[in-house]
Design a protein around this nucleic acid. Structure first.
Lengths: 227, 227
DNA sequence: AAATATTAAATGCTATCACATTTTAATAAA
DNA sequence: TTTATTAAAATGTGATAGCATTTAATATTT
């Protein structure tokens, strides 16, 4: 195992399988497991001090969520990113998150806006500390809290599947660009929410996703292709 | 086990886990497993003549795909449908499938259209036979073939997750309505594809989904609420 | 030296078993 | 009869072990 699998907070009353699932999921989401790394059951079992059984169950779940690729040699790995896959993932993410935002809008209350503000403040702090892991987590938390205003939300697991797929690549992006310029488009989202303005909300969500990913992503893929 | 888990074609060279996964997935997709039915590992293991291990792995995958709900009592079941969840699922399905269609459009060739036509003809035959299982499968096959023209397609697993969630309820719909009136909106989709007309394609996909589900779905939920 | 064949190590797969939790049934108490 | 308590059955969880497959290393042949 040529990488670390960071611990995560709040994995107490969980079964082994749930614990492994959450830990791996979190690790992939923040990009702690590098693209191309192969995930062996005995290897992970040793690292986590467990038997292969709960590891395999967790890996299969992540495979079903498109976070992990199962090769025909029966080996699991974090899939490599391609230009086409990247564009398609981002376009799907845009469509899904705008949709989720619009569906949440009627349920947005001042309480929700307050909660979002707290999360955004935490994120500003993380940005100034250059704490990338925390930044990513808080960004997800912000979007989850927004879409979750919709009590019938069913698209969140789909959105999270995209986050999982973009996670490892996003980390490459950050370490590649070095000083990662983070525009805080959450402010625009909050304004649109306060105005209950659907078009503005759509635009703000689009900008948030675009600014965080697209330009840097395309640049990295292009640079990589030239080598 | 108060229900049957139908066999499926082409499960030869699969591992036990893959076999169980595919068989259960297919069963849920066509609505063969009723809403609310609880899926026990030993029960399914007996039915399929296997041990609990591959069953548990398959169930966990389906849980991660939102096809099966894991209660806190650690028991797995096919979740019940509610009015709100239904509306949200359908709206997400509309957005996702229209998006997938538009992304596929540039790659549509006469060959693809020909393949779609073959599938649609098969489906017409299934409709006239009132073969609901086959109808559902062929409908999915049609949409898969359409969206799959896009070589970078990443949204299909998300779309299939929605299909899985609507499957059991769709079956209730069919058996409730009895004579299920099936409009063949695939013809309109094919026309739009031939014209390479994106707006027409969007409309046709929307109609296809709406006609197949929405009106009947709302009616059933309303009727059920009155009891 | 390169290619092939053979052997050894590593890995994945699944049945089994012991244990913990939950559910159901039976019994006792109110 | 209803409610509590207890016992029994059923179910979920996870470590283990043996086998199958795959990968790596070694030996053999060309």
């Amino acid at each position: 195992m040529s990488f670390e699998v960071p611990e995560f907070e709040g994995g107490e009353g969980l079964t082994s399988q749930e614990y492994v699932y959450m830990r791996l999921r979190n690790a992939i989401m923040v990009g702690a497991i590098p693209t191309g790394a192969s995930l062996t059951m005995r290897g992970l079992a040793d690292v986590m001090g467990l038997s292969a059984t709960p590891i395999r169950e967790a890996l299969r779940r992540l495979n079903s969520e498109q976070a992990v690729e199962a090769q025909d040699n029966r080996r699991m790995l974090i899939p490599e990113m391609s230009a086409g896959r990247f564009e398609d993932l981002v376009s799907t993410r845009l469509v899904l998150e705008c949709h989720a935002g619009l569906r949440a809008l009627p349920y947005i209350s001042d309480i929700v806006i307050g909660e979002l503000r707290v999360i955004d403040d935490e994120m500003d702090a993380a940005i100034s500390r250059r704490d990338y892991d925390r930044m990513i987590c808080l960004n997800h938390k912000f979007h989850r809290a927004l879409y979750g205003a919709n009590p019938d939300l069913t698209s969140l697991p789909l959105i999270e599947s995209i986050w999982l797929q973009l996670g490892p690549f996003q980390r490459e992006l950050i370490s590649d660009v070095g000083e990662f310029y983070v525009m805080d488009d959450h402010k625009a989202i909050l304004e649109a929410l306060m105005d209950r303005a659907s078009e503005a909300l759509t635009l703000a969500i689009e900008n948030d996703i675009q600014n965080g990913l697209v330009s840097a992503g395309r640049a990295l893929i292009e640079r990589r292709a030239q080598r």
